[in-house]
Each structure stands twice: as C-alpha cells, then as structure tokens.
Nucleic acid binder design. Structure first.
Lengths: 254, 254
DNA sequence: ACTAGCGTCATACGCGCGTTTGACGCTCAT
DNA sequence: ATGAGCGTCAAACGCGCGTATGACGCTAGT
C-alpha cells in the first residue's frame, strides 16, 4: 500500500502549500521565492518541482483551492436571490459578494488568514495573478456585472464599468492592508463588532459610490472655483495684474 | 567652459530619467531593471550609477521631480481655502486633491503621462515606493487628514482612517488602470468631457463613501438575511430538515 | 604640447532566481 | 531475495539582476 511514503508525500505537499500561502499573504507574488517557501516548509528546494511541476503550477493550485469555493458560493447565493423573482438591489448584491467571503474568513478550513489572502489576490499587480483571475472567474464577474446593471438602470453601462472598477479596487485595497486587524480593532473601540454590523458598514461605504448621481451643478461649481483659484495662484508669480485670463469668470472665494 | 561635455551629460541624465519614468509607468517598480532602462535610453549600463549613484537614487530623484510640485500645490491650495476662515467641506477637500493633479496632467512639463505615473506611485506595493511616499509626504497627508476630520465631525477618527484609506485606494486603483483612457473615452461617448465635469464626477463617486452614515438598520437586515440564506444553503447538504438553526429568525426572501 | 578630468564604454563580479540532474534510501510486489 | 519505483536530497546549470572597475576618447586649462 505504500502507506508511509504516500502520507509523507501528501504531508510535504500540504506543508509546501501552507508555506506558500503564508508567504504570499505577507509578500505578494513578486517577492516570493521557492527558496523561501521550501525553507519555511522545511523541505528540499526540488520538492516544489517534483510535486507540482513548477512554482506557478503550485500557486495555481493554491489559488484554486482557496478561491473556487468562494466564487461558487457567491454564484449560488446570487442564483438563490434572483430565483425569487425580485431584482436584488445594489446593497444586496454587495452583500452577496461580501457575506461568503466573511463567513469563509471565519472558517479555519478556508485558511488561517483568508481575508488577507483575498485582499492580496485582488490587489496583486503581477501578470500571473491577474491572468489567473481573468481566466478562472471572468464569467462570475460578468454575472455580477449584469446584476449590478439591472439594479442600477439609471447608470450608463460605461459609467458602471468605471464605478465597479472603482469600488472593487477600494475593497481589495482595504482587505490587503497589513494592519487591517488594528483598523477593525480601533473601529470597535473595545466592544466587539458582530460580522453582520461590520459588513453593513462596508456596504454602506461602497454602495453610495455605485448609486451616486452624476456630478451635480454644486459639485461642478466647487471644482470650477478651485481650478480658477489654482490658476490665479500660479499667475501671481507670472503677472501680478488682475487675472481675467480663463474662459469663464468666477471669483476665487473658497 | 566644457560646454559640449556638460550638455551631453545633462542630456544623458534627462534621457535616463525619461526612460525610467516611461518604464515605471508601464511595469511598476518591480519589473524595472537598469538594463531595460539604459537600453531604452540608448546609454551604457554604467551610466545610471555614474550619474545618480544607484538605481534607487535615480528613482528617488524622478519621484521628487514629479511629485514635489504636485503636493506643494495641493498644500498651497488647502492653505488658500482655509485662509478664508471657512471650513472647507469634504467635496472641496477632494477637489483640492484632484484639481492640481488633473491640471498638471495636462501640462507637458509635468510628464507625458503624469496621471498614470501618479496611479502607479500610489498603488505600487514595493517597499521602496511606499517608504519614499511615507518619508516625503507624510506631513501633507496629515494636514489633509485634519482637514477631512474638521469637515466630517460626525465621523469618528478611527472610522475616518478606514474611509480615507478606502477612498484613496480606490482612486489610485482607477488612476493606475492601463486602459484608463478607454474608460474615459467610453464615458464621454463621443462628446468630449471637460475636466471640470470629469473631476466633479470623481468627487461624486468618492465623496459619498466619506460622508455616508454608518450602517443603517435596513442594510444590517439585508446582510443578516444573506447570512441566514448562505447558512441554510450549506446545511441543505448536511441536514435536509427545516433550519431553525441560527440565533435569530428571518425568512430568506431576497 | 601636455595632461587632468569628465563621460562613456565593455566587461566582470557576486548574488538570488527557477529549474534540472543524478545519486541515495526506502517500501513493496514479484 | 531482488529490483522497480517513489520521495528526498545536495549540487549544479543558466539567467538576469545591481554594482564595480579600468581603459578609452575627448575637452579644456596650463
């Protein structure tokens, strides 16, 4: 049966994956070397190529192990919501994205630092990670894009692309923060925050950026006055006279 | 006078900086090698160390050349606004951050792709870039943090840190987008968008995330129902009976 | 005319990287 | 008992990296 050998091999694979995950969370894809991984795992350098074929293949397996279940759950949750016949609103769709992530984050089986892994993955700039996400989860992203489009019929599709890009970038940036735990700790100020409330707060942050109306006249006016103010400050050093320069008139009052 | 030699040296310096900027915008700090830079600049490999001392010193000089003026202008604009005695509101402060960046982005002297450089700098994960920003522009960040704190007295300081982190991450993520120009082109749909309106739209996206109230009961309820829904879907595979499981009752209707 | 010094150049050094190789035990079916 | 096959190991390969070195041409002051 080759019991001992087989178990030893499986154990080595597991330790390599664990070490790779730990170091990836800490340093990201670049700044991750096989020598560091194998040293941390206590195995030989060649073990990675023996068991996985290459460094990238090992990382692909790691990512699939961690992300496949998350995205499958998100999809099932979206299906379940849409199956009721009602069109889920923007906040609900955001919740569908967040709730499985948070609950898996509490599940030790999903990894000891699942949320930080998630943040790293979504914000990592390396082509390897980007390609992996693109190739494996594009249809899921498309499904959610359509769901958002239905929930926000007043937002043009092009503008929606920008807003989603915007919202997801911010989220991944927050998740990837090294001192995320301290941020949450400060947020709670002693009293522990239930996940439900924490997620509701996140939704409250992201949702307005998606549902916001386009620029209002008041906002346009504020920007315009700042543009004028900057131009006048610059021309102070060039022509001391009163600036009637631009293509519109507005005083510089803050 | 050593005119020719001196000019040649200055020309080499300029070409190195230009090439370094171009490649940094395309690939970021990691993925940037001296051999690529010198090849692109048409100079010898040793030129970098001769003129700047080291690779990092050259990049520091590049960053200072590009970012010092921007942040100085931001600071002056904030000073000018606060000097009027009025407390600038959140949208105005965002405008103060954006307007100089956008106007410098239009200025060829600030670099051919200033906004993309800015996005790369703010979203680059390498310790070198992060340290440089931290060391050079921390006081400026502090000034703006205080300004936001005054503009948003109802937001606790700890929550404000999270929100600013969130907002700035999203912004840098959007700026760093490779196909940013196409996004803007789609946005405009033929008709050119004036900068003023574009900035107003950006402010309209970011501002709500800063001013939003904490999670409302309705949001909390939506999240809670999703949490229940996920739990019930999972227990379908474990116990087919009706789930009265959780610690609260709420039907799963979306 | 001579030479000090500057800018450029080819070249090499040491290092860490991902990958490959071949030998060495050990288990287990024959 | 034997030998095939698996998992591990130290060692090495080639590569690209940042940096350092010394020679070479040219300019410009003496």
């Amino acid at each position: 049966m080759r019991t001992t050998g087989g178990n030893q091999a499986a154990e080595t694979r597991r330790r390599l994956l664990d070490s790779a995950e730990h170091l990836f969370i800490e340093r990201g894809y670049e700044g991750l070397s096989m020598r560091q991984i194998t040293a941390h795992a206590g195995t030989n350098l060649a073990a990675v190529n023996y068991h996985f074929g290459s460094k990238d293949a090992m990382l692909r397996e790691l990512l699939s192990q961690r992300l496949d279940r998350l995205n499958e759950e998100r999809l099932q949750l979206l299906d379940a919501c849409e199956a009721t016949g009602q069109i889920p609103d923007c906040e609900t769709i955001l919740g569908i994205l967040f709730v499985p992530a948070m609950q898996l984050g509490r599940d030790p089986a999903a990894g000891p630092a699942f949320l930080r892994l998630l943040g790293r993955v979504y914000s990592d700039a390396s082509p390897f990670i980007r390609d992996h996400l693109q190739q494996h989860y594009r249809p899921i992203f498309g499904r959610f894009f359509d769901a958002f489009a239905r929930a926000l019929p007043h937002v043009p599709r092009s503008e929606l692309g920008l807003r989603l890009h915007f919202a997801l970038k911010s989220l991944s940036g927050v998740l990837a923060t090294d001192d995320m735990d301290e941020l949450v700790a400060e947020l709670s100020m002693g009293r522990p925050i239930p996940d439900t409330e924490l997620l509701a707060r996140l939704v409250a942050l992201v949702s307005p950026a998606l549902t916001a109306p386009l620029g209002t006249p008041a906002q346009v006016d504020k920007i315009h006055r700042l543009q004028q103010l900057r131009q006048s400050r610059i021309s102070e050093y060039q022509e001391p006279g009163p600036a009637h320069a631009g293509h519109s008139g507005a005083t510089s009052g803050a």
